[in-house]
Amino acid sequence: MTELTTRWLGLDLRSPLVVGASPLTDDLEALKACVGAGAGAVVMHSLFEEQLVAEQMAAHHFIDSRINMDAEARSFFPESDVFEMGSGSYLKRLDLLQDALDVPVIASLNGISSGGWTQHARELEDAGAAAIELNLYDLAMDPSDTAATLEQRQLEVVRSVVEQVTIPVSVKLSSFYSALPAFVAGVEAAGARGLVLFNRFYQPDMDLDELELSREVVLSSNAELPLRLHGMAMLFNRTGLEMAASGGVHSGDDATKAILSGATVVQLVSALLVEGPSALGRITGELNQRLSTMGYRNLAEARGALSLDNAPNAGAWERLNYARLLHGWQSVQ
């Protein structure tokens, strides 16, 4: 059997399979079952800065606009600052999960401003988070906002968070950077310890009958995995950051591919939402069997074995293979 213990972001994990950020955070029994099935760590769902700000502003506006309606209002309307608003419920959930689970619990932060990111990052550290997963998702809606200015703004966010906390910070990236290795070098220089590749963004569709945007969450399939494999294989040995694969892992073979591409850990979400915690036990068994069959004694031996530097046909990761694939597809029609 292959030894599945690993070390990620300075944390000792019993397994490279991690419960990724998802609604499962709100289901303690499901998380306990995942840990019992072999999960190495749990990532909480994201704390969204803009949602907190909106909730705070709405509550303040509601209470403060009514407290001076008449002379008796103050007798039954408390001041707005007596209510628990902000990250309090998230921090309580973090505390609960830490007490109930015997694996590291990583907090997830998704913010929009340097000040907001750093404030909430400090709160998460003070609450005992083992690490922080920092989501970078900054839409360029202004035509004057160039890729360079957007990336510089994101790197400043990473730097500001890293400077404010002592726990490890892992950065969850989109797949849309035109020069991913260069941006990753900037993330590393900013002090991050890890990468998560890649974020799956909410993309509203259209309801043509109702003539409005539809809000449906589409779960991943393993058809999304090759994009992650390519990114990790390209970055392995070209960055000191540890990498987590996120998106498209539904089997032990999928997890094996991620590790062979360079992943330290593999995050699972959609497979768990579809199949339940039993998916984690199944994938753990399949991963161990596949790695054992391939002759790997531990994860370190397997990690990056098919990366850009180590693959026997490394050119398959590069652009030349694209032309060959297209030519081959045309020739069989």
Rank of each mutant, 00 (worst) to 15 (best):
L101P: 01
D145H: 12
A100H: 00
L31G: 03
Y202P: 09
Q289T: 09
Y137C: 10
T6M: 07
Q56E: 15
P181F: 01
N199G: 05
D145N: 07
A182C: 07
A244V: 08
D81P: 08
H230F: 08
F48S: 03
S113W: 07
T6P: 01
E3R: 08
R290A: 07
D142F: 05
V274S: 11
V217G: 11
Q289F: 02
G262K: 03
S331I: 11
C34S: 00
I112A: 14
S144L: 14
S270W: 05
G191D: 05
A245G: 11
S80V: 07
D64A: 12
N313G: 11
G315D: 13
W329E: 13
G38N: 03
E49W: 06
V42Q: 08
F62S: 12
A316N: 09
L308A: 02
L11A: 04
D205R: 15
S80D: 03
E79K: 15
F62H: 15
R324G: 07
V19I: 08
I132N: 00
I283C: 01
Q330E: 12
L173T: 13
A314P: 01
A73G: 11
E123K: 08
N321L: 10
N288A: 11
L273R: 06
A73Y: 12
Q154W: 02
V53Q: 14
I132C: 06
A129T: 01
V18I: 09
A41C: 03
V53A: 15
L211G: 10
G40D: 04
H327V: 12
I63Q: 08
W317T: 01
T256Y: 15
F183G: 00
G285I: 04
A100S: 13
D12R: 12
S170I: 13
L268I: 10
M57W: 14
V53S: 13
D142I: 03
S144K: 07
T256Q: 12
L273V: 05
L299G: 02
L52F: 07
A33W: 01
R122Q: 09
Q267L: 02
A71V: 15
G248R: 04
S220Q: 11
L124Y: 02
T284H: 14
A107N: 00
D81Q: 10
P181D: 04
N313K: 06
Q333W: 11
L241K: 09
S246G: 04
V169D: 03
N310V: 04
F201Q: 14
T166Y: 13
A179V: 12
E133P: 00
F48P: 04
L219N: 07
D207Y: 08
L155Y: 05
L320F: 09
K92D: 02
N310T: 14
V266N: 01
V19A: 01
P181I: 03
V332Q: 14
F76W: 14
S214K: 14
A100Y: 00
I167Y: 02
G194K: 06
E163S: 13
T6K: 02
T264P: 06
D142H: 04
L139P: 05
E84Q: 12
G247H: 06
K257V: 02
I112C: 15
Q203W: 09
D102P: 00
A71L: 10
A131R: 01
G231Y: 13
G252M: 04
D207R: 05
Q51I: 13
T239V: 09
E123L: 08
M85P: 09
L47R: 06
L320H: 13
Y202Q: 11
L326P: 00
A33S: 09
L94W: 01
G231R: 08
D12V: 02
